[in-house]
Design a binder for these strands. Structure first.
Lengths: 135, 135
DNA sequence: ATTAACGTTTACGTTAACGTAAACTTACGC
DNA sequence: GCGTAAGTTTACGTTAACGTAAACGTTAAT
């Protein structure tokens, strides 16, 4: 039941970050691995937390925002007041994420355009690029 | 033809940033407004550049990445070498953007789940929230 | 003429998210 | 016993992206 644990360098390698980064996250209270003596031991839930953090970072969230986001999953919401505020929070997040999707779609469209122009330009400048010259 | 120009505070207001931010962008070479004596005058193309920068920032790009992105639109690509490298660049960008979209969709799914649980919890705890008690 | 609203430059301060280095412990293989 | 590979703590350094403040010019209204 106590599942497999991981060393810090295992996780660092898996996620393509440095051990410093992972320790820094602990320093900031984003993860709290167990210890085997001095050494940190990461459970799978620790691993998932880090994964979620890095996912958040990829879309430009700050570490604090990542935590806020992850904490939404946690059942620390007892009363109706907290639940309502959480729902509001969720809605704001959703709006922001949807805006980000729009931004991304706009940029993707821009990229398509640029690539089209590039290839067009290449084709007209050098009509026989793949077939150098059979002569 | 010389279109309407804008003052710095107009743009700041329009985009919800400070004038300091806009001047900072100039300091970094991201925009180069004209001058009317001392005062900066922003053309519509300046305006668009700032808009694109802020769009980039919303999805977590650094200012440098924003510039790199915007510069893809510019016709400074003369030879085939540059064009090919630009296309590669475009492809990398696209991959990164698509990854971001996946991340966002995952997070949106998570939000749906959380919101569902919240509302469920609210409904069961307080079945008559809108109708306090007619008794 | 003064004050208020805008603009300017220059410069130091701040926060986030690590990088980098030093100095040390623990475990493993030979 | 000795190196070395991975771990630890502590602490100072760094970069990006502005914030904040001082000190000053310009125009418009009162």
């Amino acid at each position: 039941m106590t599942g497999k644990t991981h060393t810090i360098s295992e996780l660092a390698q898996e996620f393509g970050v440095t051990t410093r980064t992972i320790r820094f996250y602990e320093e900031k209270g984003l993860v709290s691995p167990m210890r085997d003596g001095q050494k940190r031991l990461y459970s799978n839930s620790d691993r998932v937390r880090i994964k979620l953090i890095l996912r958040g970072k990829r879309i430009g969230m700050t570490l604090q925002e990542c935590v806020d986001f992850i904490d939404m999953y946690d059942p620390e919401h007892n009363n109706a007041e907290q639940l309502r505020s959480l729902i509001e929070n969720v809605k704001r997040r959703r709006d922001s994420l949807l805006q980000q999707k729009r931004d991304i779609d706009d940029m993707l469209a821009g990229l398509d355009e640029v690539q089209g122009l590039c290839e067009e330009s290449l084709a007209s400048d050098k009509p026989r690029t793949t077939t150098p010259n059979p002569d």
